[in-house]
């Protein structure tokens, strides 16, 4: 066979990128099964505690209104997405390169997978929140799938909050993990020293300009949807930074 004949075997870019998505789904356990499983276990735990409290109080009428609307149990799933992103860059990346994938295809395919996961989970959790609201909070005026602060928001806002925050944590996780993949421990030292400097610098500016009140005001007066919208630029910057870092990264064996 001639070299020309072989070149036709190299798939076009969209196929190659989709192959990376399929690589992430090859083992559905960590990203498609486990998160739902844990969510339902945590939910079942909450449900049991609510029932116990209701029973101990001798009925719903003896409880304060909205007593069960301060749950944050679902927020673990947002942090979990960050862990998924870190594992992806740290373990799946070197594996994929051995499977003849370029860094570019790997990153784009992984980013696409992150977006798809965010869509899936944001939609799934919003559907559960809709059921929750339709059943009057599981008959106990309880809120789990619409966590604290989101209970009275429209479902569309809830969906947007899940979607936006998951994207943020995916790409933040990916960006920090690429620092590790590329520069190992020293990279992370530099990153966290830099982060601390930025935070202290910001606090300094806010203190000297006596604007802590304004900052507090911003978070109180800005709607949840707008707050999530504010994270989007950071998400985009993280995504671009992760891509640039990974483009020159070398998979090191341990």
């Amino acid at each position: 066979m001639t070299a020309v004949a072989h070149e036709r075997h190299v798939a076009p870019a969209p196929t190659r990128i989709w192959n990376v998505v399929r690589l992430h789904v090859a083992n559905p356990m960590p990203t498609l099964v486990l998160p739902w499983l844990i969510t339902f276990i945590v939910f079942a735990g909450n449900l049991a505690i609510w029932l116990m409290v209701v029973q101990a109080a001798g009925g719903m009428e003896n409880l304060e209104a909205g007593a069960f609307q301060y749950s944050g149990g679902i927020s673990w799933i947002i942090v979990f997405m960050m862990v998924v992103a870190v594992q992806t860059m740290n373990l799946t990346f070197p594996f994929a390169l051995g499977f003849a994938v370029t860094r570019r295809d790997f990153y784009l395919g992984s980013a696409l997978y992150f977006v798809l996961l965010s869509l899936l989970y944001a939609t799934g959790l919003t559907v559960l929140a809709a059921i929750e609201s339709a059943t009057d909070g599981w008959g106990m005026d309880a809120a789990f799938f619409a966590p604290y602060g989101m209970y009275d928001e429209p479902l569309a806002v809830l969906w947007f909050a899940y979607f936006g925050l998951m994207l943020l944590f995916f790409f933040l996780g990916a960006a920090v993990a690429t620092v590790w993949v590329r520069w190992k421990a020293y990279g992370l030292y530099a990153f966290f020293i830099g982060l601390a400097a930025v935070l202290i610098g910001a606090a300094w500016v806010i203190t000297t300009t006596e604007s802590w009140g304004d900052v507090g005001q911003f978070f109180v007066t800005t709607s949840p949807a707008a707050l999530v919208a504010w994270t989007l630029p950071l998400t985009v910057v993280s995504a671009v930074v992760g891509f640039l870092f990974l483009r020159r990264a070398t998979p090191k064996s341990a």
Binding site: P30, Q87, L91, S253
Partner: peptide
């Protein structure tokens, strides 16, 4: 690169693979 395969001694696999 798409025409190569590179298997390393210390091949890394995705977690739980």
């Amino acid at each position: 690169v798409g025409r190569t395969c590179f298997i390393k001694e210390s091949q890394v696999y995705p977690d739980d693979f």
